[in-house]
């Protein structure tokens, strides 16, 4: 009789298995899984006083730096990024206008995308805010995901009266930027 016990146990298991059941559920729905987080990240910022555009009495008219950004070309971003929005906010209280340029470059330093905008002069040294938005969607996403470097150039325009900035010039130019990244995560095949 003891030999029957394993069989009996198995039958017990089968009994529980068959009397209990899982109804009205469809696990294949997991194939429709779509997770859409939206991430916002601070990007480049600077704050330069007017007197820093003057070195030993000579005016510096172009400020430029490259920023290496590897996150755009990260595999996760490349595979899942649906839309990206960039917001640039420039607050100028220097009595000089600027031309701003943001170049998106790939590994070979080839330009993928270019953003240009103008920043007004502030004759009364009041803070003037310029806002620019840039959206990457559809095919343009590829321009972003192939980008590994940003080059930021602010070119100061000549003054209308021919004056130059010196160590006592007042005002500043502040730059803030952020990116909003909309991710579409679908269930793996």
């Amino acid at each position: 009789m003891l030999k029957l016990i394993p069989k009996f146990a198995f039958i017990c298991l089968l009994f529980f298995q068959s009397t209990s059941c899982v109804k009205d559920v469809d696990f294949e729905q997991s194939e429709d899984l779509l997770v859409t987080p939206a991430l916002e990240v601070s990007l480049v910022r600077f704050n330069e006083a007017a007197n820093r555009f003057s070195v030993d009495g000579t005016e510096i008219t172009i400020i430029r730096d490259s920023v290496r950004i590897e996150i755009f070309s990260d595999d996760f971003v490349v595979d899942n990024l649906r839309r990206a929005e960039f917001l640039f906010e420039t607050t100028n209280s220097i009595n000089r206008a600027f031309e701003a340029e943001i170049q998106f470059l790939n590994d070979d330093n080839t330009e993928q995308h270019l953003i240009q905008f103008e920043v007004e002069a502030s004759p009364t040294n009041q803070e003037l805010v310029t806002i620019n938005e840039e959206i990457f969607e559809n095919d343009a996403i590829n321009d972003l995901t192939s980008t590994t470097k940003l080059i930021l150039t602010f070119t100061m325009q000549p003054s209308t009266d021919g004056s130059v900035l010196n160590e006592n010039s007042i005002g500043s130019i502040k730059f803030k930027s952020k990116g909003a990244f909309y991710i579409d995560l679908i269930s793996p095949e």
Binding site: S42, L43, V44, R45, F46, E48, R52, F53, V55, I60, I62, I63, R64, D65, S66, V67, R68, I69, L152, K176, S177, K178
Partner: peptide, 22 residues
């Protein structure tokens, strides 16, 4: 605490080089 990348404008005479900053 991260609030973005502050690029170095060597033209404005900062001591730190861009590479150091990176």
């Amino acid at each position: 605490v991260f609030d973005g990348i502050n690029p170095i404008f060597p033209e404005t005479g900062d001591e730190q080089t861009a590479d150091d900053y990176w």
